[in-house]
Amino acid sequence: MECPACHTENPESRKFCRECGKKLLLICPDCSAQNVPRDKFCGECGHSLLKPKEAPKELSFEEKIDKIQRYLPKGVTEKILSQRGKIEGERKQVTVMFCDLEGFTSMVERLGAEDAYNVMDQVYELLIHKVHDYEGTVNEMTGDGIMALFGAPIALEDAPQRAIRSALVIHQELANFNARIRKQTIEIPQLRMRIGIHTGPVVVGTIGN
């Protein structure tokens, strides 16, 4: 806390200022009564003496892009930055692809949380790469799948076709993954991915925090 006499910052546990030796007091902002350090509420009027929490820092556009870099296909970051003023509140035709791993809960029960996590980490890597290969963007990751966008934030004339090709490749790569993983262990069940695709108009807003 700050010393009212010399304005030196002191640890909350101190009763006297480490710089000038004055007694440290908390002044109630509501009634101006004196309170001792560590008091949470004013002893005179009951007003809170806790410092208000600072609002979370608003990320800049570039910081938001950097934060989600992993989920953007190669080259899309530069395209977004070049169209900075155009991607907020813009109506676009977008194709959404949902991928959901079948039997995820039973797999966790069978393998345990740690082994299931290791499997899903590899599955996520497969999904993300195959979405990026067709210039899609991973918009959300769930416990057992992803939601990907084709046509946003960068417009694609053939977004539906790209999403379909991505889905077909995901099925093929997952079959290859099953074949590889069976050679490593017999405990992991056959993995199957349910994929849904829908195309329609959306309004593209600010990329989230």
Score class of each variant (00 low, 15 high):
M107F: 03
E90H: 08
E102I: 14
D121T: 02
T105F: 11
R91Y: 12
D100F: 09
F98E: 11
V119A: 03
F104L: 07
F98R: 13
A113Y: 01
D115N: 11
C99N: 04
M97N: 06
M120D: 10
F98M: 12
E90N: 09
D121V: 00
L111S: 11
Y117P: 00
G103F: 04
M97W: 01
M97S: 11
G103A: 03
G112Q: 02
E90M: 08
V119F: 01
E90Q: 09
D115F: 05
T105I: 14
F104P: 05
R110F: 05
Q93M: 12
A113L: 13
V94A: 09
T105K: 06
S106M: 10
C99R: 03
E109W: 03
L111G: 08
S106V: 10
E109Q: 14
V108I: 15
V119K: 03
T95S: 10
K92R: 10
D115A: 15
V96L: 04
A113P: 00
V108F: 01
V96P: 02
Q122Y: 03
M107C: 01
Y117E: 00
L111F: 07
G103M: 12
E90G: 02
M120W: 06
M97P: 03
V108L: 03
A116K: 10
Q93C: 09
S106C: 08
T95K: 04
D100L: 11
N118A: 06
F104W: 13
Q93H: 04
V94I: 13
E114I: 14
T95A: 06
E109T: 02
T105C: 08
T95E: 03
D121M: 04
D100A: 15
D100K: 13
E109V: 06
E114G: 00
Y117K: 12
T105A: 12
D100Y: 11
N118S: 10
G103E: 09
G103I: 05
D100S: 14
T95L: 10
M97L: 15
M107L: 15
T95D: 04
S106G: 05
S106K: 14
L101A: 05
V96A: 06
V96C: 04
G112I: 03
M120Y: 07
E90T: 08
M97C: 09
F104N: 06
D100G: 14
A116L: 14
E102M: 12
D100I: 08
F104A: 14
V94P: 00
R91W: 13
L111R: 01
R110H: 07
D100R: 11
V96Q: 01
M120S: 02
